[in-house]
Design a protein around this nucleic acid. Sequence first.
DNA 1: CTTTAGGGCTAGGGTTGG
DNA 2: TCCAACCCTAGCCCTAAA
Lengths: 215, 215
Amino acid sequence: MGAPKQKWTAEEEAALKAGVVKHGAGKWRTILTDPEFSSILRMRSNVDLKDKWRNINVTAIWGSRQKAKLALKKNLLPSPKIDHNHMALSTVVQRDKEVADPKPLAVSSGTSPNSKEKTSKLQNFQLDNLILESIIKLKEPRGSDKAAIAAYIEDQYCSTPTLRKLLSTKLKHMVACGKLMKVILLLVNSLTRHIVLGLLELCFPISSIFICKPL
Amino acid sequence: MGAPKQKWTAEEEAALKAGVVKHGAGKWRTILTDPEFSSILRMRSNVDLKDKWRNINVTAIWGSRQKAKLALKKNLLPSPKIDHNHMALSTVVQRDKEVADPKPLAVSSGTSPNSKEKTSKLQNFQLDNLILESIIKLKEPRGSDKAAIAAYIEDQYCSTPTLRKLLSTKLKHMVACGKLMKVILLLVNSLTRHIVLGLLELCFPISSIFICKPL
DNA sequence: CTTTAGGGCTAGGGTTGG
DNA sequence: TCCAACCCTAGCCCTAAA
């Protein structure tokens, strides 16, 4: 996938340490936005900072994390009864491939989900295709909810403050036009939900299903 | 520096769910003040309730992004086809209990829908059975909506001014407990609706389906 | 002032690529 | 096998709006 793993440079690490000295550990976003460090750390997220700081301390103190991991290495048994359900459902999932693969959709072309390449403009007419692409690429069992679609688009292309709002409007419109089918399942647990959506998928291409979060 | 993060207990979560069933999502302060839940939830704020409810619903959708990831790498899908689905599904409807039933509400036992109690005393546990009976007896193609259920009960047993209200509450609760599945299809034409409901019927006993009329 | 919706942040467990 | 980098989510915080 996109990110080839970005090793921390000595400069970045120094900036992080200085940032912690200045603002305190835990103030990752603050450190990141401090003009004193922001240029050096511009390739890093606040979560990256947190993770790196943890790694630094772990190796310094010798293995508290490792110990915890080993200590927990025991009770990870899958339940057989749940497995049955899973199997049944998975057959449905497999149909994904034959259904729906309309077309590679302009924007994506060779684009590797290169991390920080997110352009910040989002044309309206693209949004239609982006939404369909999201639903297909996400391959969420059947259809995706608004949050997932938004996350995908933000992830792959851009992140604008208005995206969520635009998306809402667009989704409504597409549903109204019949380009998407909106399904709402209320207060249904995840397994039931899974099954119902599997059934839908049997009859409709995945790219036409848009799941609305339960109320 | 104080709070080391207070994980939600199963009891608290159950109380929250029950609260939502009773007062509706969004009525966080009301739930918190309700003496029925206030003692269990006394360590939580209304905002905590809101956040927890959000988390519950997020995970109910089965991890928006993680799902795609899992689907891509692990293909744990042998393929027993529809038959297995059928089995799996029937079990599912019963397994739904996993959704921590807030107040166990006495289960059927031998209760026959005997008419003598016809008057005001619609016991909680009876209503459960009455609803199931209605759905089955009505034999509406697949599942019945609230109005039809209410009409049946009034017809067969009693007619109280509070029945409709009781019924609403009860239906919500049964759905929350997994005893019923509520299905809403928005903006779907009648043919589509027909197909979807037909599919549902293939997999779920008719008595577990409760249709909400399209908005 | 109080409450709710919703975006954002951090901690910490878990996963993964090299 | 190991581990630095990265992912995911629960719980909590902040702000706007009513």
